[in-house]
Each structure stands twice: as structure tokens, then as C-alpha cells.
């Protein structure tokens, strides 16, 4: 078979495409820059586990994101199982397309003011499908929060700046989806929920 000029041109297109695709994959799969725990952990973020531990796991999350909801039990177990060797921090990354993400983040912070951030955090994720402004107000009652103080903090968006700072920090660290986890400063590429367990176990063994 003799190739025509046109055939050679088409082969050229294929070659250029292959080079572009391989280049793209290579570029995208480069390891992301690693940060230190101190850089990603903020003093006022809510933490669990051992704050003096060598290993840190930070989650940038959105209370309304379904994937964050499906990761929630996994994260809770990992943190509980490794509570002596790991400090876990929750940082906000409410996405624009989730209407209830911001109110939920504000409510969690307002609950945090009364020492019940994690209770609110768990309650929201466990009832994620019911998320609404009304639900958040009722949640505060159920958790036994002081209604007046909670509503004042929540409705006046007292912690808006803190959440905005988390968002800005998240973007700075390369967060582009939720949930995004940083283990010892390194962004994790998780393909399944069990990958989180494996990554934490390996980091602790080191």
C-alpha cells in the first residue's frame, strides 16, 4: 500500500495527538508540591486526635457535597482508630453550586463557639439529605445549644471570614474538588474510600 500525501498528513495528526496526550498525562500526574502540617493546619481550625502527633490529616470539605458525605464514616473511623498518632482537622471549602454548604458551615462554626463543632459536623453529615436552613436551626436545638447565642452567630454570619479564609487557603494549596485530603502536607489522590485508610496506615508506619 502506498501512502498518499493526505495519509501522511493524517498520520501526522495522530502523532501530534499522541504526543499532546502523553505530555498532558505526564504534566497532570506530576506529584503535587507538598506542604508542611504547620502550613495547612490553622490554630483555630477544629481538630481531633492527638494535637502533638507527628502525622496530620486535613480535610477540605463541603457539608452538602455527596462525596464528602460518603467519606464521612470512613474519615471518622480512620481518625478514631489512629487517635494517638494522628491529628485531624476539618477546613471549610463550600462550593458555589451547593446552596446549603455555606449555611451549614456557618452553623457548624456557630455550634463550635459553644464547644459542639464536631457534634454539629456529625449531625449534618448523618442527615445530609435533609439539609436546609430550618434543619440547621432544629439541629442546634437537638444538640442542646443555647438558641439565642447560636442564632446570633449563625444569622449574623459571625464566622464568614474564617470560612472565606479556609476557601482562599484551599485554593492556594490546590484544592479543586471536595473532599480533598492532605496527609502530612501531601495532597492525596484517592480512588476509593479504603485508599484513605491505607495512606494513613502507611504514613504512621514510617
Amino acid at each position: 500500500m502506498k501512502l498518499s500525501g493526505e495519509s501522511k498528513f493524517l498520520i501526522g495528526i495522530v502523532l501530534v495527538t499522541v504526543i499532546l496526550v502523553i505530555g498532558g498525562i505526564f504534566f497532570l500526574s506530576r506529584p503535587a508540591p507538598a506542604f508542611t502540617c504547620q502550613e495547612i493546619l490553622t490554630s483555630d481550625s477544629y481538630k481531633k486526635g492527638n494535637e502533638k502527633a507527628r502525622n496530620c490529616l486535613i480535610e477540605f470539605s463541603d457539608f452538602q457535597c455527596p462525596a464528602c458525605g460518603s467519606f464521612y464514616p470512613q474519615v471518622k473511623n480512620v481518625v478514631e482508630d489512629n487517635k494517638d498518632n494522628l491529628v485531624f482537622a476539618y477546613r471549610h471549602f463550600p462550593l458555589d453550586q451547593h446552596e446549603q454548604a455555606w449555611p451549614a458551615a456557618l452553623a457548624a462554626e456557630a455550634a463550635g463557639e459553644q464547644g459542639k463543632f464536631w457534634e454539629m459536623h456529625d449531625y449534618i453529615f448523618e442527615n445530609q439529605e435533609n439539609l436546609s436552613e430550618q434543619f440547621l436551626l432544629e439541629a442546634a436545638e437537638k444538640l442542646g445549644l443555647d438558641k439565642e447565642n447560636f442564632e446570633a452567630a449563625y444569622k449574623e454570619k459571625k464566622y464568614q471570614d474564617k470560612i472565606n479564609r479556609d476557601l482562599t487557603d484551599g485554593r492556594k494549596f490546590g484544592v479543586d474538588a471536595t473532599p480533598t485530603f492532605f496527609l502530612n502536607g501531601k495532597k492525596l489522590n484517592l480512588f476509593s474510600r479504603t485508599d484513605l485508610d491505607k495512606a494513613v496506615e502507611e504514613a504512621i508506619k514510617k
Binding site: L10, I13, T17, V21, A67, F191
Partner: peptide
């Protein structure tokens, strides 16, 4: 013919990417 050829390549790339997600069950 060239346009169809290029569009087919684009189709192959999209299909490979999405199929990878299906097989590996990744997002």
C-alpha cells in the same frame, strides 16, 4: 474527511477516559 478524522480522534480520547473511569470505578 480531515474534520471527521479529527472528531473521531477526539471521540476516541473521550471514550478512553470515560471507559477508564468505568473499569477502574474511579470518579
Amino acid at each position: 474527511n480531515r474534520i471527521v478524522f479529527i472528531l473521531s480522534i477526539i471521540g476516541v480520547i473521550i471514550a478512553v477516559y470515560v471507559l477508564y473511569g468505568f473499569i477502574k470505578k474511579t470518579s
